[in-house]
Design a protein around this nucleic acid. Sequence first.
RNA 1: GCGCCCGUGGCUCAGUGGAUAGAGCACUGGCCUCCGGAGCCAGGGGUCGCAGGUUCGAAUCCUGCCGGGCGCGCCA
Length: 584
Amino acid sequence: MKATLVANLTQAWQTLHQQGLLPDANPDRIEVVSTKDPRHGDYACNLALVLAREAQLDARELAEQIIRNLPENPGLLKADVAGPGFINFQLRAEAKAEIVDHILNQGANYGTRPPGSEQRVLIEYVSANPTGPLHVGHGRGAALGSCLARILHAAGHTVECEYFINDAGRQMDILAISVWLRYLELCGEPVTFPEAGYQGDYILDIAADRHRAHGDEWHASFENVQAGAPDDGPDEDGHNTYLDFLILRARDFLDDSTWVELVSTATDILLERIRRDLDNFGANFDHWQSERELLDNDRVEKTIAQLRAAGHLYELEGALWFRSSEFGDEKDRVVQRSNGQWTYFATDIAYHVDKMARGYGTAINIWGADHHGYAGRVRAALQALDIDPKRLEILLVQFANLYRGKQKISMSTRSGEFVTLQSLQHEVGRDAARFFYVMRKSDQHLDFDLQLAAEQSVDNPVYYVQYAHARICSILERAEDEGTSIPEDPCDLSSLTDEGERALQKQLSRYPDAVLRSAQERDPHHLTVYLRKLAQEFHAYYNAVAVLVDESAVCQARLRLIMAVRQTLGNGLNLLNIDAPESM
RNA sequence: GCGCCCGUGGCUCAGUGGAUAGAGCACUGGCCUCCGGAGCCAGGGGUCGCAGGUUCGAAUCCUGCCGGGCGCGCCA
């Protein structure tokens, strides 16, 4: 109906153009919106207000002219001028009821666009370092990415999801030394475990696994390993100095292949756990891209060589720098350290160049907000290599602060103090956790109170939406039990004239816009807002009007209406990968 | 200091340049002999951080200020 109105308005505009009153018609400038206040009709258009100035006409006068030139539209009851020059449209009841049959015909496809009608998109998300289990801090990105993948798919994009595995660099050495030291403890060595090592219990499990596999084969005297070590402390620098010393010594005691095995078995175990947790959480991935692999295949070397050939690199104080400041970054960045090692930035350039070369129209990265300073340099590198940086969209998600009641829970993978994503799911359930994570704009901070979510989970809005769905299922079941036929085919809906019925039909017709907006703005929270509103209108209707009434025609029409509500709630929940239960 | 993000009822937050700024929680008072009370209805509570500007029209856009978060490594 909205599209029809736009077409009608275009035609009226064109007619006025021919009369020399207005510039040439442009449908893109015609904005028809669903009204919030029923007194403003069903749809409203501000066209006259927008054009009044350039046409040098009074807006109300112009609105009159437009209305007079509107073509015949059987669904339209009336159009009139309101306020400073709005055109308000009121539809006939039959035209409004069309939405019910439309939804039931479309079924699961209601609100979606044909697959492949939009560009290919790659969404990279979570990408947590494989140095520990996923915790609640990763949950928000996981929820956002997986919802977005479904929403973009519904909006017609071809979507693939990717996890970038940071399985290289110093953190891998820290992982290995942490495991080895715990292993030595199992061999009976008294170990002073470094403050800056990974202290979580999961390290003990991995060490035990290695000890079972290798016995005391990798045993060394800790006293010898530690000989000559500086004190562990007193600040972060001191902790790191001690840790680096232990890593160097460990590599003297162990041969390279042992070290590689320590790293790879630990990351394998952790990655397996990450995969399982994400899968349980409803976050699925098509690709798992290893950073190590990019390094081993000389992808980094080749990409940096391209930058060098294009004249964007220079040497300073023994290091290799990329002139990123010439491409809008705040300052130049090191790509190769003076010790010959690539920086993380260098591998990341190679990774992004590789991603863009795979033929996606758009690549979306979901990053924690603490990485925002990093976006500029990655875009600079793409631009330097003649790749349009606009094809890379970086979504920054603010942290979720975790509380238990009033007490804020600090989280650190290092110290092993964190609440895992798995235990969160256990406490509040997958549906509630997912909904909670995406119900706020992703660039807003989110306070996640575990105690509240666990103790009063009934207050969580996800139940409100699910309850509406279950309630409808319950009514339909009841109808069947009573021998009332469920209307599978379109029937007469002219009895749907109650205020609540009109409001529901209107809200139902807004669903495709909600999906589209979530897709365009890359933010599922619009969908959560929509679903809460639809559920609210259904609950209000339920309390005001009985569906199962004696008069058959009325009952049938109401059943069709609530079936359309059920379908729309189900479609929306499905896009969030949240269950739409038949009973609760 | 520089950069990015954010300031909306007591609290947590919606709000697409549009008409009288909305929800939930909390508070007060009501509603099943009735399709599921995990629900509904009503009420109080707001100078949309402050000051300018653009516009027919600003919570929304621009500038400045105030307040908060985050980031500014040859870490990843």
